[in-house]
Simulated assay, not measured.
Amino acid sequence: MLDPPNHRRKGFRSRPGWQKALIVLLAMFLVCGLSAGIATYVLVNRYEGKTQHEELLGPAAEPKDEQRWKSGPLDLLLLGSDDRGPSERAYLGQRSDTIMLVHLSKNLDHATIVSIPRDSYVNVPPAGSWRGGMNKLNAAFAFGGAPHAAKTITGLTGVKFDGALIANFASINRMVDAVDGVRVCIPYTVRSTFSEKVWEKGCHDLDGVEAEEFMRQRKAVPGGDFGRIHDQQLVVKAIAEKVAAEGMLQNPFRLDALLSTAAEALTIDKNLDLKELVLVAKNIKPENIKFATVPYTSASLKTHAGSAVKLDDAKAKEMFAAVRDDTIQEWLAAHPQKLPGS
């Protein structure tokens, strides 16, 4: 068995938010990569109808600039939550499991997805009963929902957002099975804490159930939560590569099973048009989607809010400046990300 008896019963809703967020983000970019024509238009309208629209950004929103949407760059905020309800307003009091800054390059042909550790110890502005001060980043979501999380992240990064998305419902194993499994190459050995399964360093073919079990490992992975983030990135990349390699992007209807469930997972900022996003990101290929994590110096900082992550202030400041200047790809090339635990 993978987990305690209730594992299969809980399904996707019990899964970590980083899985949900990345699954949905992958689906978004796959939609953006569909071939042009009537079939694509029909699918986009279908998925648009399955998404919810809410006020997610508030004052953290970048004023709408039509030219920016035509030529870039663009910055999106992606949050993952364990929400059980249909509305973003139901998220109040909960903490966001995943916080990602998605940067689309000026030419709209590259995307950089920067994970900001949810336990980063940062300044969280006042909201509700919270008087303001240092706290874990994901607490901002609990204090004031997505708009307050966006305000806090803008204060940290200096980035104002052109759009935002919340992921709250999907299924990783169904997506892996929809592409008939994935091949993942692991730079270290991972031992399951749910079964006797061991993934030795090297390449492995995973079906949906096994991919889910692999992505949920934390205790026996180098770097703990950071290792788990790295492993789920490997699976997400593998799905994108499998889709592209088998020509699914040239046949939109083959993607329907993969995308329809993911579309239902989305709450989109009311000012973000899915069809507009498709048009601006249509040239982004899977190999041009890069993942990164904000540099940190300690994953076990002792604070009044419990154990937190201490960001590397100098390097984080440089990284955020590179996002704002649209030089993040060059910055990452000059500052290669280390493997978790190294």
Rank of each mutant, 00 (worst) to 15 (best):
133 G>V: 08
69 W>R: 00
120 S>Y: 04
130 W>P: 03
106 K>H: 15
122 V>R: 06
92 L>Y: 03
109 D>I: 00
91 Y>E: 10
93 G>N: 07
92 L>Q: 08
122 V>W: 03
73 P>Q: 03
124 V>A: 04
108 L>S: 05
101 L>D: 07
77 L>W: 06
70 K>E: 12
75 D>R: 01
62 E>G: 09
129 S>D: 14
83 D>L: 15
103 H>S: 11
98 T>E: 04
132 G>F: 04
93 G>S: 07
92 L>E: 12
111 A>V: 08
110 H>P: 01
65 D>Q: 15
125 P>S: 05
118 R>H: 07
82 D>Q: 11
110 H>I: 01
128 G>E: 01
70 K>Y: 08
133 G>N: 09
74 L>P: 08
114 V>C: 08
121 Y>Q: 04
134 M>S: 00
73 P>L: 07
71 S>C: 13
124 V>Y: 01
100 M>R: 13
128 G>F: 00
128 G>T: 01
104 L>S: 00
130 W>M: 01
81 S>W: 00
123 N>M: 10
97 D>R: 13
62 E>M: 15
109 D>Y: 00
128 G>N: 02
109 D>V: 06
113 I>V: 14
134 M>Y: 11
96 S>L: 11
112 T>I: 05
132 G>T: 04
63 P>A: 10
117 P>V: 09
91 Y>M: 13
117 P>K: 13
68 R>N: 06
111 A>W: 01
135 N>I: 00
79 L>C: 12
92 L>S: 10
119 D>F: 01
116 I>P: 03
131 R>V: 01
86 P>L: 10
82 D>N: 15
78 L>H: 07
80 G>Y: 11
64 K>T: 14
73 P>N: 02
104 L>M: 13
133 G>L: 05
136 K>N: 07
90 A>S: 13
98 T>K: 02
96 S>T: 13
75 D>K: 06
110 H>S: 00
99 I>V: 14
72 G>E: 07
69 W>K: 13
75 D>P: 04
63 P>V: 09
113 I>M: 14
78 L>Y: 06
90 A>R: 09
125 P>F: 06
123 N>A: 05
64 K>W: 15
128 G>I: 07
79 L>Q: 02
120 S>L: 00
126 P>Y: 01
69 W>M: 05
74 L>G: 10
65 D>G: 15
131 R>Q: 14
83 D>N: 15
98 T>N: 02
123 N>H: 14
112 T>A: 00
65 D>Y: 14
128 G>K: 06
